[in-house]
Design a protein around this nucleic acid. Structure first.
Lengths: 148, 148
DNA sequence: GGGGCGTGTAAGGGTGACGGTTACACGCCC
DNA sequence: GGGCGTGTAACCGTCACCCTTACACGCCCC
């Protein structure tokens, strides 16, 4: 399955906003930085602002800003805000309920799948946009906020 | 993205084989139990046998069998055997290296993504086909091996 | 030893999500 | 008020997934 690149691009955009500080960034700027199109970025920002992670300033000199300090934005929130797909996909058509295995496999398997998903999410929740931004600044040898 | 249902269907097939005991099951039987087609099942069995989890008996009365005790087959092995997609998809086209963020985001983000993937895989590795089979038998109120 | 059963694999088609593009209405700052 | 930038809809190309059909091969049973 092609999983979507939305999560990584959304983190990219949020890190760019964190690095930018108080200066709003246009969707065109973010699109250039992430090698995608402004419309895709605006679609992501639409979801992120609905989740309370960003806000937008209209008009000339406008653009996107973080709605909260980068230290308070965890990767799990970002993941949930932009990713539609589930970690596991069940049978395309449900198995027959009158089958000994088919009728009980979903119920029997679900707890294990849930545990794996929760372990995944808990680990994502441990990291914040600020940590990623700091690491990017360290790798790129620059300081936050960065003047473009 | 539609993620693939291969993992769940593969576990379904392996649980059916575990429940069946020594009696080989045809791809047609497994397909019926999982509400899919025999060709899809054979494609999964092909991957599972390549991974050393199942083996096949040709000819009349033939079918698929577990190559190892169900207690020794972990869900992570199954996942790796049949699933092609990655948990995270990076930018469709790589970000520009000369960008302060674009040039370092992948390197800065990778460790967090790896930790999440490893937590996910470690949790999957804790569960075996035998445990799922036991739970299915409990829910279905039957005993293993089951006569069909 | 031959007939038939069952596997393994390839090819083609339908479906759905994703990402890109174009287009356009609205709101806000200069 | 003019222009900048956002927000959203519509359309399209692409790709993985799953299903179906088809067929060659290997093995068991009679």
């Amino acid at each position: 399955m092609p999983t979507s690149s939305r999560f990584v691009v959304a983190v990219h955009a949020l890190v760019a906003l964190a690095v930018s500080g108080d200066k709003p960034l246009r969707s065109e700027d973010l699109a250039h930085s992430a090698s995608t199109s402004p419309v895709v970025i605006r679609g992501l920002l639409s979801r992120l602002s609905a989740a309370g992670l960003t806000r937008s300033q209209l008009g000339a000199g406008g653009g996107a800003l973080l709605a909260r300090p980068a230290e308070e934005i965890g990767l799990l929130e970002v993941y949930r805000a932009v990713e539609d797909t589930r970690l596991f996909t069940l049978h395309r058509t449900p198995p027959p309920p009158d089958c000994a295995v088919g009728g009980n496999i979903v119920g029997g398997l679900q707890p294990a799948l849930t545990r794996a998903r929760e372990a995944f999410e808990a680990e994502l929740d441990h990291t914040t946009i600020a940590e990623i931004a700091d690491e990017v600044a360290r790798l790129g040898n620059f300081t936050v906020p960065l003047e473009w």
